[in-house]
């Protein structure tokens, strides 16, 4: 089986300081991988390198493109990479306002990715937008409201709808539940899990919340100071952590 994403020796330096280094892994179709670590551990740097928002100093990020199989997205041309960004890839930002157009209606936000791949039938675009708002539990009568009129949880769900409407195969998520109330988080997690399963999505989720990865991720990578210090099956890493830092991380979580 061909991996959907093949990451090889990714390194990114900020001057003399390490952003992330020596990162390699394969992600297979349908797999969800979590990346945990504290602030400054390099997990967001890594995510941005993988998603093409940052150019790594070395290494390869090969993606199994529909047309030509595995292609290194680091060296492919910018138009190709941006095309991936609005078709097969999706990026869910921690802050919904970074991933939404706040001055465009909910329907326009969802429809943009469709129009970006040349959908030119208003009725069909609107129909798809309604369908997707329903899937993320936003009622149809909010379709013409702007995200500024939505709660934080709704904005995040709208961002997810906007990202998934073109049926991507790989979703990058940066702290998707960060900054939300616990009850809202639960709803979002449930939604994400359902979508991941129904659409057969692969996802890479960066978070510092171990509960989130336990519920969403099949596999887990633990980062510290720019290095991956431990990786494996999510429940194995959390229940039988090998590295001192991971043990500390796991034991620091408050039990509820």
């Amino acid at each position: 089986m061909t991996p959907l994403l093949q990451v090889e020796n990714i390194a990114k330096m900020y001057g003399a300081r390490i952003g992330c280094t020596d990162v390699s892994f394969d992600l297979y179709p349908g797999e969800v991988m979590g990346i945990v670590g504290e602030s400054g551990s390099g997990k967001s740097t890594l995510l941005n390198c993988l998603a093409g928002h940052l150019t790594p100093d070395s290494g390869a990020v090969r993606f199994d493109t529909r047309a030509e199989g595995l292609r290194d997205t680091v060296t492919m041309s910018e138009p190709e990479r941006r095309m991936l960004g609005r078709t097969d890839w999706a990026f869910v930002h921690q802050h919904a306002r970074d991933g939404l157009r706040m001055n465009v209606s909910a329907g326009g936000n969802v429809g943009e990715r469709l129009m970006a791949v040349n959908a030119r039938h208003y009725g069909e675009i609107r129909g798809k937008a309604i369908d997707w708002l329903g899937r993320v539990e936003i009622s149809e009568d909010r379709i013409d409201d702007r995200p500024t009129a939505f709660s934080g949880g709704m904005q995040q769900r709208l961002q997810i709808a906007r990202n998934l409407v073109t049926g991507p195969r790989l979703v990058f998520m940066d702290e998707p539940t960060g900054g939300l109330d616990v009850s809202v988080q639960a709803r979002l997690l449930d939604l994400l899990r359902g979508l991941v399963r129904e659409m057969g999505l692969s996802a890479i989720i960066v978070t510092h919340d171990l509960a989130v990865v336990r519920l969403l991720a099949d596999r887990l990578m633990v980062m510290k100071d720019g290095h991956v210090i431990e990786a494996g099956l999510t429940d194995q890493v959390l229940d039988d952590p090998q590295h001192a830092y991971t043990q500390l991380l796991v034991s620091s979580v408050l039990q509820v």
Binding site: G108, G111, E112, M115, Y122
Partner: peptide, 8 residues
Amino acid sequence: GLMHVKLY
């Protein structure tokens, strides 16, 4: 695509 968002 954005241009059509305006028309949408």
